[in-house]
Nucleic acid binder design. Sequence first.
DNA 1: CTGAAAGCGCTAACAA
DNA 2: TTGTTAGCGCTTTCAG
Lengths: 346, 346
Amino acid sequence: MKQDKPTHVTLLQVAKHAGVSRSTASLALRGGRYVSAETREKVFESMRELGYVYDRSAASLRSKSSSSVGLVFADLDNPFYTALLIGINEQLNKYNITPLLGTTFESCAIQERLISTMLEYRVGGIILFAVPDTPKDLINRIKQVGIPVVLINRNFPERSFDYIGIDDLAAGQIATEHLIEKGHRQIAFIGGFSKLSSWRERKQGYINAHTKAGLDIDHTLIIEGAATRESGYELMEKILNFQTPPTAVFCYNDIVAIGAMMKLKERGLEPGYDMAILGVDDIPEASIFTPKLTTVSSFPMLRGARAASLLYQRMEGLTNEPPQSIIIQPELIIRESCSYKDEIHP
Amino acid sequence: MKQDKPTHVTLLQVAKHAGVSRSTASLALRGGRYVSAETREKVFESMRELGYVYDRSAASLRSKSSSSVGLVFADLDNPFYTALLIGINEQLNKYNITPLLGTTFESCAIQERLISTMLEYRVGGIILFAVPDTPKDLINRIKQVGIPVVLINRNFPERSFDYIGIDDLAAGQIATEHLIEKGHRQIAFIGGFSKLSSWRERKQGYINAHTKAGLDIDHTLIIEGAATRESGYELMEKILNFQTPPTAVFCYNDIVAIGAMMKLKERGLEPGYDMAILGVDDIPEASIFTPKLTTVSSFPMLRGARAASLLYQRMEGLTNEPPQSIIIQPELIIRESCSYKDEIHP
DNA sequence: CTGAAAGCGCTAACAA
DNA sequence: TTGTTAGCGCTTTCAG
């Protein structure tokens, strides 16, 4: 933007107006210890009078510090992401840090560009919801610039960076065990792609639960697909066309589950009664849908907050520990979408 | 953040490495017209080799230009806000503008602080979802700094700034007329506060529709309250306790409507059958809830996009027209939550 | 406690 | 086309 308007009031002008030197004004402004209360008052008075606006960029340029961070999200159209964002944002507020926001739409190229831009803005750190096939190198490149990165929700196989997520394996296992306990033997796992670490782990949990119960895995029951409502809707369609459809479906996340339940209802089937449905995340919609969705909570707000605070620790150099993975334990939230199998096929 | 890491590669170093002067490198970098292809290549080559990262802050400091904008939101926990944000964000992407994000939580003080911070970052413009009792003066103060402001969703009575919203009066009227047409005579209007311009206008539309149909207004049927699910839930409780409850409820927005419908269902009542419910916004949940919510769409994504492009016009000085109000016409979306009154009380 | 001087990394005249 | 010279607004030594 062309800024042809009245040239800004500068610190120098404030200083002159207050009858002190520029450096004194600078000290006063930042509440430095070495300036008399009287002088400080004069300076603030002048600032007010002249309508002075501090220039953070100039300050960071000189001091090589930054009070902004980059938030790189995949998208915003999933309530789960929003919850994450709210958590991050609230925490950042506490530190008085301003977030720059960007979305990759799951494109590696956009992610690349986005991160470059953020680095150009000299953010002090980045919270990254990484595109699945992100080259590990990218993270290193960022860290080489000298700023910390916290991965959220999507980890790299090597686990060599700061990361915060849930125990996806446990989530898959808890969910599947619940279904097995309810008497189900034919359980599908739908939505999400195998390139997502969380998908792989939830699937492993799903498998573990089966193994533990001495059940065989029917691989035709594991169906990948986008993690969207539409996808859940379509995947359920497929399932319903099986000769012998499963009696229960474990969905990669809540919006897939909701899509699936919509299809069920459209077919005149009652989720929870005609087929058990279970999700992951516990987004607001989960408890609003009819029937209320039984799900495994992944505590997105909490996670967002933790990500922000971990990043802050790193930025301030408050911790020099090696990369840590904060893994939050998921929790089964029983509502209405999973009943006993006997109730389903009496 | 303390940045003690390897000092950045500067343009000067790149220039030296490429064997040209700093200004030539600067020109090359920005694709200036006055530099030979050969030189440009050399410069880019050096940039790559040295791992150069452009410093946008330094550049803006010097050139007095900015490619970031501030987004001041009330909150993020309403899908309607999120939709707005998505629209803004996508449009901004096209302009290659990076948003700084902040939320006021409806606090005037936080809003003040937030905007100050954004000004300190020298944003090129601000999209403001204003706190209800924002002093008009604030906007003027921002504009005095020389940057444009676009108000979104919440206007000032004087309408003297750029604004983008929907025709709230029409929304209220369309909604109420639909209900009247269905045979309802006792229609409540719940949620939202009278300090919101949109509330006042929707209410006016509600009144107009009544007047037009020769119906009296029962002011006990107009109940203010927060614009949240919880509030809708509680407000419906109140309504249900009336000696003769209304047969239809026009809700300030969709989440209020959803809250109201939840209460209805909890009481064993069927929205659309036992009581007609109508909302405003058309958030995703509206078509997912059972029964599907009949609502007046306010096109949030579209509005977000328009806000971003209007701001961009102003930033680039592409238009010098006086403040414009872009008013989008709302549209009735008939789904399942409003049936004929005769169906309700046969 | 205060002031003078230097310079962060970049762009913008102006010459060459 | 390219190089030289000044700063943008601030912080930071380092003397007073």
